[in-house]
Amino acid sequence: MTDNPSQPFYQLMPDTVIDAVESQGYLSDGRILALNSYENRVYQVGIEESQPLIAKFYRPRRWSDEQILEEHAFCFEMAEQELPVVAPLRNEAGESLFNFGDYRFALYRRHGGRAPELSDPDHLYQLGHTLGRIHLIGAVRDFKYRPRLDIQSYGHDSVELIARDFIPASLREAYVSLTADLLREVEAAFKRAGNVRYIRAHGDCHGGNILWRDDTPNFVDFDDACMAPAIQDLWMLLTGDDRNELQLQLCEVIEGYNEFAEFDPRELHLVEALRCLRMLHYSAWLARRWEDPAFPHNFSWFNTERYWGEHLLQLREQFAKLREPVLELL
């Protein structure tokens, strides 16, 4: 489903952003800075005699109120256990999701930091340690409203959209054939993993969503929180192509993780399968947002003959990775 560019979301003006923040009892000093976000609209808003706030305006029709509030509740659970997550602010009535005109938004305290050094064993251990604590809470109960990371929605639905509306005719046959082979390999990987447990997970746990501050990783942006295997929040911490180096990185992450939660090694069968689903889903995400004027402007390389040719090459390389032996815990 695409969004209509005539919707008010794409006409969100600075005065409206400030008025929305002030509707929650804050007094803005008039300073506003648009932050790097495409799925939603996020702004830093200056506050009189106080630290700036971060205002996040949710994309229309993406999440229901129930899904957003479920994400917020997960953050509150973790914050109450003193986990380093950036949770939304609540007003005096205990509300965290606010409405202003046609917009839904949440407010956050500004939280600085830098990206973790994923080549640093100490950082990897600390990241695994913190994710073990997060997953310990994530395993307490299931999401009721938020999505489940599965092959159908992330894989088959993504391929169907691209094949139908976006891939050039000259590449469609190759794309359909290759993705069918890929998804068979993904399904085989899930079958080899067996009945792994799904828990509440961050869902998009890359370095850009982790702020390193005071020797602590602070996890931000739970907008993609979903039911997923634990490995979904771990595999994106592994970088590079050298197998020996990946093995060492994995061991550091899992050693920290196992301090609080017990990692199921069967989930290692899912690393490349989940990477493949992410690749397919990412192209479909761009396609679904193509009517948003911000996307052609910021992703001008998408939906060109060159892009799709390179995408096919990357998918062929991923097909080879799916057939390689899985990583092991040394």
Rank of each mutant, 00 (worst) to 15 (best):
A228Y: 00
A228D: 09
A228T: 13
P229A: 12
P229I: 12
A230T: 11
A230D: 10
A230K: 02
I231L: 11
I231P: 03
Q232G: 00
Q232C: 05
D233A: 09
D233N: 06
D233L: 04
D233I: 05
D233E: 09
W235L: 04
W235V: 00
W235A: 00
W235N: 00
W235F: 14
M236G: 00
M236V: 06
L237R: 03
L237F: 10
T239F: 07
T239P: 05
T239S: 09
G240S: 07
G240C: 12
G240L: 06
D241F: 13
D241G: 03
D242Y: 03
D242M: 05
D242H: 15
D242W: 01
R243A: 13
R243G: 11
R243M: 07
N244E: 14
L248T: 07
L248G: 10
L248W: 06
Q249G: 12
Q249Y: 11
L250R: 00
L250N: 04
L250I: 03
C251P: 04
C251W: 11
E252S: 04
V253F: 09
V253L: 11
I254D: 06
I254W: 02
I254K: 02
E255W: 07
G256V: 13
G256C: 10
Y257M: 07
N258H: 06
N258Q: 14
N258C: 13
E259C: 13
E259I: 07
F260Q: 13
F260L: 12
A261P: 00
A261Y: 13
A261W: 07
A261L: 05
E262W: 01
E262Y: 07
F263N: 01
F263D: 03
D264G: 03
D264N: 15
D264R: 01
D264A: 07
